[in-house]
Amino acid sequence: MAEIKLTDLTKSYGSTEVLHHVEGDINDGEFIVIVGPSGCGKSTLLRMVAGLETVTSGEIRIGDRRVNELEPSARDIAMVFQNYALYPHMSVRENMAYGLKIRKLSKAEINKRVEEAAEILEIGQYLDRKPRQLSGGQRQRVAMGRAIVRDPQVFLFDEPLSNLDAKLRVQMRLEIRKLQQRLGVTSIYVTHDQVEAMTLGDRLMVLNGGYVEQFGTPIELYDRPASVFVAGFLGSPAMNFIPAIVEADGVGFARRHKTGRRTGASG
């Protein structure tokens, strides 16, 4: 279990800066969702925490350690990828055991952890299958299982549900939430889907163009959006905007909507 501290994080590829001065404290056991439109830098941020991308400037701390210079495997994290990244030539069991084997855990211990995780995720009967013999939902579970067996301090999810059909996505979303609450592991979850974000996260970090627009609970974001972007991005159906001018004698409508449609608030 650990808290995560992001301090003045910046990421550049060559001369283009894609993340600008990101700040954020994540509490122990919290479920944080990073949400924002595609290309805004969510994955980059997550991968920096994982150690898959270098940090250009700033600091990442997990627990009481600065991890900037640590290899991914030394950061005590586990990650679930969008395409699951299961090793296609290994059985489900081998996939889950691989990281533990490298860490030289005993055979008995590895077996125990794999069986436990398989039971939690209800994939016990598939342990000897290869990934290609599984459905999308089952593969997703295996990817989760691979994260669980490591018993890490932090779970990282990069759009783990976006390859599933809509119905399964809703079901898995609930399961992930329950699982995280049960295990109490600090988690960062990346998605571009604001409904997913609002229903999953303890707190949401809204990213836009590499800037943190707002970092807060779903209710805070919904009731008191810090920017037009946040207000427009969250909520379903979307919030309506009415151009207005603030004047000394109060607020007045600047002009009617171009098409002449009704412009009153409705959502």
Partner: peptide, 14 residues
């Protein structure tokens, strides 16, 4: 071979 294969292996400590 997908990049994630390597990333996954690195997280696994390979």
């Amino acid at each position: 071979v997908p990049d994630e294969m390597l990333e996954s292996a690195r997280i696994d400590g390979a």
